[in-house]
Computed example of a mutant assay.
Amino acid sequence: MKALKLIAVCTAVGLPIISHSAFADDGFRFSGYARYGAAFQDKDEKKVSTAGALNGNATGRLGNESNGGEFGLSKGYTSDLGDQWDIVVLFDHYSDEPWATSGTGGLKVKKAYASVTNFIDSQPELKVWAGRDFHQRPQTGLNDYFWMTHDGQGAGFYNLNLGGVKLDFGAVGQVDGDLVGDNGKYAVTSKVHGINLFDDASLAFYANYGFTSKKAQDQSYYGTRAYQLAADISMSGHHLLFRYADNAKDSVFELAKDQRAWLASFDGATNISEQAAIEYLAAYQFLDVAGVEDRANYNVIVRPTYNWDSINSTWLEAGYSVVDYKDINAKNSSWKLTLSQNIVIGSPMAARPMLRFYTTVGKADNEYVGFDTKTGNMQSTQLDTLTVGAMFEAWW
């Protein structure tokens, strides 16, 4: 192993095991994701959502998002023996109502880790890391839904080659708010991927387990166990996924007693012509909880796109979401239409940066948003949306 060779050589001649002179400077990198702009609200709500929705931004994300960004810095090094190191830090700025845990706002440290690859001759793709990282957060795009997420502090590895199939594994603790320690919730995560089914089709399996440490002994969730199992089939740009969670939903950090969730989702994109394409998503999720809020969320989103040339494009996104409560005979629903005129660096749908000028119209008809504490009657809302906005979106 290259790392062991380096240790042996340094020890033999009395040198420190890590020496800056042993590394070539691979440079400094700036990466991230951001979207910022202004939106003028002319009705009840700026954005469209269904009360009790389970499937992320279930009525569609285009023209239906808040501002925010993630800004990362990294420094890479390669030793004379070929092992490659990265030191990474990332800050995020999502202090809007849907995400903020307090009213203070500001930047938050979401990544601070070091990793190494190409340090074992037989495993050149194996990446070992330790620190704080975005961890295991697969996503469906049109509804901006992280159907698993285990961001935290710990250690793990990616791409351990097991005869052609690869294994990712990690053990992380959930960060305690904006502090530097954990809150006593822990997750062991795993993913087996690179399973080829046939031409342009592959399969990945996920298995995660959540539990607590003694630090959480005074909390109501202490001693609770949670797990998730999922399968994700990728087929030429289309994804079909299934996920089951016990005492959890999107994360085993939830440790929610007597809760189970079943998710099935299909999404993808198809080219209609050289200039036109359509993206689509359909999902179903059922949540079984203690009490009367067992419910299913059905949602469908379609986004036709047309590229006028290599810079200008027009998108139209239509979304519909239904939340059907099992025990209280109530249904919530919402619909949304967003027309977006875009200036983009390239014509493909995924090209960024993009300037976006859009109008969103929609309506949420919520038969159930809770019970009146005085009368016990079921409460409902009907909310209209008309929003005109401009924003940029970029990843780099």
Rank of each mutant, 00 (worst) to 15 (best):
V292Q: 03
V252G: 04
F242D: 02
L229D: 04
F266H: 14
N183D: 13
R260Q: 12
A283C: 06
N297H: 13
A264E: 03
L203S: 04
Q219T: 10
D232P: 03
S273Q: 01
L179E: 13
W262D: 10
D288K: 05
E279S: 15
Q228D: 09
A231N: 08
N297S: 11
Y206A: 06
N297F: 05
A269G: 13
L229Y: 14
R295W: 05
S273M: 05
A201W: 01
A187E: 02
L197T: 14
G184L: 01
D218G: 15
F266M: 13
Y209L: 13
K249V: 03
Y306T: 13
R225V: 11
Q285C: 04
L255D: 06
D176E: 08
G177F: 07
H239N: 15
A290E: 00
I301M: 02
S251Y: 01
K191W: 00
A248G: 07
L255Y: 07
D178Y: 02
V192I: 15
N183S: 09
T189A: 08
S213T: 15
W308Y: 15
Y298N: 09
A204L: 00
A282F: 09
V302C: 05
F198D: 10
V292F: 03
G268T: 11
Q285H: 08
D258T: 14
I233N: 05
